[in-house]
Computed example of a mutant assay.
Amino acid sequence: MFSLGPAEWQAIEVTARLCLYTTIILLILATPLAWWLAQKRSTGRVVVQAIVALPLVLPPTVLGFYLLIVLGPRGVVGQTLENLGLHHLAFTFEGILIASVIYSMPFAVQPLTEAFSHLGRRPVEVASSLGAGMVDRFLTVILPMTRGGFVVAATLTFAHTLGEFGVILMLGGSIPGETKVLSVLIYDHAEAMNYPAAHGLSLMLLVFAFVTLFVVYSINRRFAVAKV
């Protein structure tokens, strides 16, 4: 029977940190971007939408390859960091965190954009006419009325990060305690023909994926009923 060993627990710890940090960063970055996308109706909006959605159709290895070029020792960012006496970002946790944020961007931006679009401008305009500032409008009007979108965005981002493989392997490799996440560990187990371990971890992720989708659809159904 499969049991979690030190390697599995280490991969779980790295994966959990990656998922948590990615979700927090994306909720911060995606909120103003999604609000802008929900309000604008220009050609520039379409261009930004296409860029944000690019990871949905771009092979993960392609994105991982170009990030490796940019963040590696010979890349613009990596070489600049080394010239400053710092380490480049290839094969580091910080590197795969950047990759994860870029790769999971649409899973945060799109639910929030939809939630803001359904909200409309009227509630915010009313709050503004009553003297509410920008922060007050967000905390007392926008956030409560679009909380379902935030929950869906956070859930999908966390779950998608959990299953990332190609972009992580290309940029981070398989360094225990640093870049070896659960998906990479499953690949390593399968490559070593350790099928019981690969099956055990895969089953864990399968169950988590099902629960995540169940939660997302339940939230969408709840808020759809509430609007009716």
Rank of each mutant, 00 (worst) to 15 (best):
F210M: 08
M1A: 14
V70I: 14
H88E: 06
L68H: 05
S42G: 09
F214C: 09
S174N: 15
F165Q: 11
I25V: 15
T179E: 03
I25T: 13
K227N: 01
M1T: 11
E114S: 14
M170C: 03
A154S: 11
V126C: 10
Y103P: 00
L4I: 15
I175M: 14
M204G: 04
Q10G: 15
H118S: 15
G166I: 07
A159H: 01
H189W: 14
G163A: 07
F2D: 01
L182P: 08
V76R: 07
I168T: 07
S218V: 01
V135L: 15
L81C: 10
R137P: 02
G131K: 09
R121D: 10
V184K: 05
A192I: 03
V48H: 01
Y187E: 12
P59I: 04
I69F: 09
V215K: 01
A108W: 10
L97M: 13
G78F: 06
S3D: 05
P55S: 12
H87Q: 14
P32M: 01
S100R: 00
S100Y: 01
T22D: 00
M105G: 01
M170S: 13
C19A: 15
T31R: 00
G177E: 12
H88V: 02
R74H: 06
A38M: 04
E191P: 00
V211Q: 01
D188I: 12
T155A: 14
Q49R: 10
N220S: 08
T61H: 02
A192N: 09
L203D: 01
K227D: 02
K40A: 11
L206F: 14
L182K: 07
H87M: 10
A224F: 10
T22C: 09
A99T: 08
L27R: 08
F223I: 11
V52C: 09
M134I: 13
S218I: 00
G148L: 02
A50L: 14
S100I: 02
E8G: 09
I28M: 04
I69W: 05
G173W: 06
V228W: 04
L185T: 11
T92R: 15
L201Y: 12
P144G: 09
L54Y: 10
G177R: 12
Y217C: 04
V48D: 00
G177Y: 13
G75C: 02
G120C: 12
L26S: 05
G148P: 04
L89F: 13
A99C: 12
G149R: 03
V215R: 02
Y195P: 06
E94N: 10
L205S: 03
R121Y: 02
L4C: 15
I69M: 13
V135C: 09
S218T: 14
V167E: 05
G78E: 07
L33Y: 03
T15A: 11
L56C: 03
G131L: 08
M170Y: 06
G166H: 10
N194Y: 00
V184M: 07
S183K: 12
Q39Y: 01
M134P: 07
V126S: 08
A11G: 06
L112H: 05
F165A: 11
R137V: 04
G172C: 09
S42T: 15
V181E: 01
G163V: 03
L29D: 00
H87D: 06
V141H: 07
F93C: 05
F107Y: 15
G64H: 03
L63W: 05
P6Q: 11
V46S: 14
T80H: 12
Y195N: 08
G72T: 06
